[in-house]
């Protein structure tokens, strides 16, 4: 008998989901004790964690590198604008923004999945541009200059800030736990098989395209919700800004620095990114130059990112989605 035991979770991971919920509970109390400036900048952090997690889901697990996820951020933002015009509360509109993004992701995937690898990445960018150019032509939604969000005017300023904060936090928690849930199920198993050997996985009957499409839709939904949060936070939308490729740059940099293919990666990466942003906020464009250089160096010399380093040093896993072997000392063969 071999002394090797196959495990899903390490001891640390029992703290993972529970810990996340505990942290979320503490964070949820923050509007009662902290200044609005704190909660307001945390909204930005939450959005970054959300969109980076979505990009990580797509690229790190689905193998689909996209430079066009801003398409769904924009779609989500415009969905909230549109629904608010029709009397729906912007906060209620956030899940509908996720839904709209997921629905539009179906035809998008039919086109984009015809491209592979690097070409998929750039093809998605073109598709994002198409969404931007089409929405810029809708005068009811403000055309090329954008417009402001209706339905928030009557709301108390403090309450609005707190509600925005809670909405952003809720979207982030749902996004991260959603990734965890998705990847521990059949889809995660299929994607692991694909990552190891796509041809063998197909031969073994794994519906590779279906698994990738599910991940693509989930990622779109998360980005759509994040777009909804952004528009509620800013109270207005402008097509060139909401569909900017800058969002993709943020997602990619965060995930690459944090650690691609680990659910913890985008969270850690977003915190580092956010800290750098605060630290270098006076440096203007130098900030992006430094960030680009860090991301390039990270991709070349630290392909598993910061979280990969954490695992190497401590073996800690908060959200294990793979399986790993443990050799039991004493029973294992030398």
């Amino acid at each position: 008998m071999s002394g090797v035991v196959v495990r899903r979770s390490a001891r640390s991971s029992r703290f993972g989901a529970a810990g996340l919920i505990a942290v979320a509970a503490v964070l949820a109390l923050l509007p009662f004790v902290a200044y609005e400036s704190v909660t307001s900048s945390l909204v930005t952090l939450f959005v970054l964690v959300t969109i980076a997690s979505m990009w990580n889901l797509l690229a790190g697990f689905g193998g689909l590198v996209s430079i066009g996820q801003q398409a769904f951020i924009g779609v989500g933002a415009y969905t909230v604008i549109y629904l608010a015009d029709h009397g729906v509360s912007p906060f209620v509109a956030i899940p509908l923004a996720a839904l709209t993004a997921a629905v539009l992701a179906v035809p998008t995937s039919l086109l984009a999945f015809r491209l592979r690898g690097d070409y998929f990445a750039v093809g998605m960018w073109v598709i994002a541009e198409v969404y931007r150019l089409l929405l810029s032509r809708v005068d009811a939604l403000g055309g090329a200059s954008g417009r402001s969000l209706e339905g928030m005017a009557g709301m108390d300023q403090t309450l609005r800030a707190a509600a925005t904060y809670w909405a952003a936090l809720a979207v982030t928690v749902v996004a991260v736990l959603g990734c965890y849930w998705l990847l521990r199920g059949r889809v995660g198993l299929a994607l692991t098989a694909v990552r190891d050997d796509e041809i063998a996985a197909r031969a073994a009957g794994v519906d590779v395209t279906r698994a990738k499409r599910i991940v693509f839709l989930a990622s779109a939904a998360g980005c759509g919700a994040a777009g909804g949060v952004l528009v509620i936070d800013a109270l207005s939308v402008q097509p060139n800004a909401i569909f900017s490729v800058q969002w993709s740059a943020y997602m990619i940099f965060i995930v690459v620095i944090g650690g691609i293919g680990y659910l913890e990666g985008p969270i850690l990466g977003a915190i580092v990114f956010f800290a750098l942003q605060e630290l270098l906020s006076d440096a203007g464009t130098w900030y992006l130059i430094v960030l680009g250089l860090i991301a390039m160096a990270s991709a070349l010399f630290m392909p598993r990112g910061l979280w990969g380093q954490v695992i190497d040093r401590t073996g800690m896993r908060l959200f294990p989605v793979g399986y790993h072997l443990e050799r039991h000392v004493g029973t294992g063969r030398a």
Binding site: I67, L288, G292, L293, A295, A299, L300
Partner: peptide, 13 residues
Amino acid sequence: LATLLVTFGLSIV
């Protein structure tokens, strides 16, 4: 993924 990430980083830089 590295070539894509590196050339994208280069683009931003």
